[in-house]
C-alpha cells in the first residue's frame, strides 16, 4: 500500500485557484520531489498535506486512513514528520533539548510539572543526534547554530516520532552545495532503511535530479508532468515553464 495517497486536491484563495485536481502517491522508502515555479502552489499543496490548510476538495490518505482536514498536531501523531523551508526550532533550548521535546511529546509526557526535563528521554535523543552526526553539538543552543546544522536538527526532530512519512519543504534552501548533497544522501539512506516515504520540494536541480526517485512538476496549481527524473528533464513543457535551457543548472 502507498504510504501517502492524494486524490483530487483543490484549494482556492479569494477566487484564485491555487491548487487544482492534484493526485499522486508516495511509496514506503521512496523519495518524491515536488518542483515548479514560484507561486505554482507547492507550499499550498504541502500545507494541505500536513493539516495547516484545509483543502476545498479532495482527500489525503495516510496508510489508507483519511487524514484530510486534521490539525497539524493530529497529523503528526499519526506519523508525519515535517521540516520547514526556514528552519523552525526552539532557539532557547539546546540541540538535545529540542529533540527531547519531540520525544516527550511523542510519549505524551509534556504535562509534567515536577521532574526536570534534563533527566527525561535524554538517551534516545542522543541516539537520534548520533545518527545524524550531530552528537557533538548536543549541548549547544539552537539559537546560535549554523544554518546547515539547524537543518539536521530539524531532521532529527522530525524523525523522533518514528514517522511513516516525511514532508520536507525546501530541505536544502540556504545550504552550501556540499552540505546539500550530504544532507539529502543521509535522508535517502534513512528513508530506505526505515521504509519512510519522503516528499520534498526543492529549487536546487542538482539535489532533485540526483536524489529523487520520481518527480512531480506543478505549474499554476496543476500537475503538468510526473515520472522518473530523465523523463521529466526531457519534457518540453517542463523546460519551458521551469527548467529553462539548463544554462544555470549545469545541465547542458
Amino acid at each position: 500500500m502507498a504510504t501517502l495517497e492524494v486524490t483530487g486536491l483543490e484549494k482556492s484563495f479569494g477566487g484564485v485557484r491555487a491548487v487544482q485536481g492534484v493526485s499522486f502517491s508516495v511509496a514506503p522508502g521512496e523519495m518524491l520531489a515536488l518542483i515548479g515555479p514560484n507561486g505554482a502552489g507547492k507550499s499550498t499543496c504541502f500545507n494541505m498535506l500536513n493539516g495547516q490548510l484545509r483543502p476545498d476538495a479532495g482527500a489525503v490518505r495516510l496508510l489508507g486512513q483519511d487524514i484530510t482536514g486534521l490539525a497539524p498536531r493530529q497529523v503528526w501523531r499519526l506519523g508525519v514528520g515535517r521540516t520547514f523551508q526556514i528552519t523552525a526550532t526552539f532557539g532557547s533550548m539546546t540541540v538535545l533539548e529540542n529533540v527531547q521535546m519531540a520525544l516527550l511529546s511523542h510519549h505524551r509526557r509534556l504535562g509534567g510539572l515536577w521532574r526536570p526535563v534534563a533527566r527525561m528521554d535524554a538517551a534516545p535523543a542522543r541516539a537520534l543526534l548520533e545518527r545524524l552526526g550531530m552528537a557533538d553539538q548536543a549541548a549547544r543552543p539552537c539559537g546560535i547554530l549554523a544554518y546547515g546544522d539547524l537543518k539536521r536538527v530539524e531532521l532529527a526532530i522530525a524523525l523522533a516520532n518514528e514517522p511513516k512519512l516525511l514532508l520536507m519543504d525546501e530541505p536544502t534552501a540556504g545550504m552550501a552545495p556540499q552540505e546539500r548533497v550530504s544532507l539529502m544522501a543521509l535522508t535517502a539512506q534513512i528513508a530506505r532503511e526505515s521504509g519512510i516515504a519522503v516528499l520534498f520540494t526543492e529549487h536546487d536541480m542538482d539535489v532533485v535530479f540526483s536524489h529523487a526517485d520520481r518527480i512531480l512538476v506543478l505549474d499554476r496549481g496543476r500537475l503538468i508532468a510526473k515520472g522518473a527524473p530523465a523523463v521529466v528533464r526531457a519534457d518540453p513543457r517542463v523546460r519551458e515553464v521551469y527548467l529553462g535551457s539548463g544554462a544555470v543548472t549545469g545541465a547542458h
Partner: peptide
C-alpha cells in the same frame, strides 16, 4: 539574487 528562484527565472535575471 538567484537563491530560491526557478531556473528559467534565473536565466532572465542573468
Amino acid at each position: 539574487p538567484s537563491e530560491g528562484l526557478a531556473p528559467v527565472v534565473i536565466e532572465r535575471m542573468a
